[in-house]
Design a protein around this nucleic acid. Structure first.
Length: 573
RNA sequence: UGGCCCUUCGUCCAACGGCAGGACAGCGGACUUUGGAUCCGUUAAUGGUGGUUCGAAUCCACCAGGGCCAACCA
């Protein structure tokens, strides 16, 4: 068997690489073919440890690691930790965990904070070359001096300081002689440059703040542009893939890497970031949802974070398949939720066992079934079209729970489920015919009565008669009580980001993104499964026992995604 | 308003001067002990105007629409 595995996988990988022709892979393929770098290609995934990774990062991870793998190259994990005020080890740990969970292994692990000395040396070199200077204007003045997108900036009074003066100031900045904001180091490029990023960009700023890795040993922190391209260069990155909003930064990236003398330099290529309907994918907004308590944390199953999706029951395979399906291009891409849900169902369908659970229980009494009798049915765990085997014992008795949704006293057209006088199949059980209902004083249905046909055990009628509907059920005496957490989209607007006033994406929060159902019923076979077990509750949806809150005796299931529901469409007509 | 980028079915991605194709969604049907899955069929697009060319989604120009850039964030 290993023989066939070995012979089929390289072939499959080859097909995969050949079939995928996006502009990034085309470019990399060209560079590999031309031998441009004279060594294997090298990519990197460079998150800042100031928040949790989300589905948008997953796209980038799949691209960076996927391309490295397809072209026999390397991929680093680099923590881009140049801002001591927002970063934390906690995020580093979460990032590592999430990348591994997604199924990727990085070749080298680096921290931008390990490059502070090297970056500082480059800064001195730039000063000596007359390419950088210490500016002592305050923040606001610097901003004003930069001009606007339509008007050029103007040089400030410190732009022409001598090399010696700059060097002295820079060294004293590093030595900690000045308070925050007293001076900054800027590249000397062109205050009137049409690209705002080239108007003497800031390289180093003073921050007397403890860095989670460097402590208080350092007080001149590099800014993104200064750190990023050079970090790529230090690591021998060949292809630096990033999102479209960094397009303008590329000019500065190239300038810095060239000034520092790297040849051949790493090359930045931008691609469109992922946008997904009915959620937000900005760390700033996600952080707000967490800190303001709109969700239960970074791993709330409604969050688009990898931690949230994991707890929701989504598999890494589904996320990777999703990333493959959406492709990558240079135009802004907003993906419909259905595309994501399809990837999730497609994966879960083939891997998780089926089980019976009732969301909103309604008692069904089989009046001709002997009282006290309990049968044990043998029910398959997988449907005929899933190539997996196995079964579990399923108790059946006189009193059952069925879903309220599966009974209508006055059935709508095309309603195939239980109604007075109607016969339906109890999944894996018997054919039953509804004979009536029992109401309380308020006129609410409290019990449905039916008779079962003893000749139909298992659900087949010996006389070949056909029934339209099959419904799920749980034997009442053996049923396990459980809590169901029915998750839905976090926002009710497809583009919460686009809402008029920035910040009021919160107004679009979906009040029904979590519906907690207590007193749901599930069949007893799941009692011993460990937390984190996934199932399909037949006819309802895919669920996972909550990895955090579910315990034996107090089961909690999160709905990963509902099943496609074509009845819902019929019903609405 | 200066610079840069983008524009192909409802959505996402292909077609790289030579018959506009796939996926998701939708619709219709088959099958079905999940109104699931699967299978079959089907609807549906080159933003506009001009130009180059035997031939343009593809090249050029202009227009329109959208995005990014004026943090000591990344």
């Amino acid at each position: 068997m290993t023989h066939t595995d070995r012979s089929s996988s390289p072939d499959a990988a080859g097909h995969e690489a050949a079939a995928r022709k996006d502009f990034l892979r085309e470019k990399v393929a060209q560079d590999v073919a031309s031998g441009r770098f004279g060594r294997p290609i090298h990519t990197r995934f460079p998150p800042e440890p100031n928040g949790f990774l989300h589905i948008g990062h997953a796209k980038s991870i799949c691209l960076n690691f996927g391309i490295a793998r397809e072209f026999a190259g390397l991929c680093n994990l680099r923590l881009d930790d140049t801002n001591p005020t927002t970063e934390d080890v906690r995020y580093v740990d979460a990032i590592r965990h999430d990348v591994r969970w997604l199924g990727f292994v990085w070749d080298e692990e680096h921290f931008a904070s390990d490059y502070f000395e090297r970056l500082y040396d480059i800064a001195e070199g730039l000063v000596r070359a007359g390419k950088a200077y210490v500016d002592s204007q305050d923040e606001e003045t610097i901003r004003a001096g930069r001009g606007t997108v339509t008007t050029p900036g103007t040089p400030g009074p410190f732009r022409d300081r001598t090399v010696d003066e700059n060097l002295d100031l820079l060294r004293r900045m590093r030595a900690g002689e000045f308070p925050d904001g007293a001076h900054v180091l800027r590249a000397r490029i062109d205050l009137a440059h049409p690209n705002m990023l080239m108007r003497d960009p800031l390289l180093l700023r003073i921050r007397h703040a403890a860095h989670y890795r460097r402590g208080t040993a350092w007080c001149v922190y590099p800014l993104y542009d200064f750190a990023h391209g050079l970090s790529d260069a230090f690591e021998g990155i060949t292809h630096s893939l990033c999102t479209l909003e960094f397009k303008d930064n590329r000019e500065l990236y190239d300038w810095l890497v060239r000034e520092a003398g790297f040849d051949p330099p790493p090359e930045q290529t931008e691609f469109a970031r992922l946008e997904l309907d009915y959620t937000v994918l900005s760390k700033r907004k996600l952080l707000r949802l967490v800190t303001e308590g709109h969700v239960g944390g970074w791993d709330d199953p409604r969050m688009p974070t990898l931690a949230g999706l994991r707890r929701r029951g989504v598999t890494p395979e589904a996320i990777r398949a999703f990333a493959d399906r959406i492709g990558v291009a240079r135009s802004d891409a907003r993906i419909e939720l259905a595309t994501f849900e399809h990837a999730v169902r497609d994966d879960l369908n083939m891997r998780v066992p089926r089980v019976l659970a009732v969301v909103r229980p309604l008692k069904l009494v089989l009046t001709n079934y002997p009282e006290g009798k309990v049968e044990t049915l043998d029910a398959p765990l997988y449907p005929h079209d899933v190539p997996k085997t196995g079964s579990r014992p399923l108790p059946f008795s006189r009193e059952l729970w069925i879903d309220r949704e599966d009974f209508m006293e006055e059935p709508l057209k095309k309603f195939f489920r239980l109604a007075p006088g109607r016969e339906v199949r109890l999944r894996y059980g018997y054919l039953v015919t509804c004979t009536g209902v029992l109401m309380n004083d308020a006129g609410e249905i409290v019990e449905v009565h039916a008779t079962y046909d003893p000749a139909t055990r298992g659900g087949d009628a010996p006389d070949g008669r056909r029934v339209q509907g099959t419904i799920h059920w749980v034997s009442a005496p053996q049923a396990l009580d459980c809590e169901l957490r029915l998750y839905d989209r976090l926002f009710s607007a497809p583009e919460p980001d686009a809402l008029a006033e920035e910040g009021d994406f919160l107004a679009a929060l979906n009040p029904n993104s979590l519906v907690t159902v207590r007193g749901a019923k599930v069949e007893p076979s799941v009692a011993v499964d460990p937390p984190g077990s996934r199932y399909q509750f037949e006819r309802t949806g895919y669920f996972i026992s909550d990895p955090v809150d579910s315990r034996a005796g107090a089961l909690v299931f999160n709905r990963t995604v509902a099943l496609r529901d074509s009845w819902a469409k019929v019903k609405d007509k």
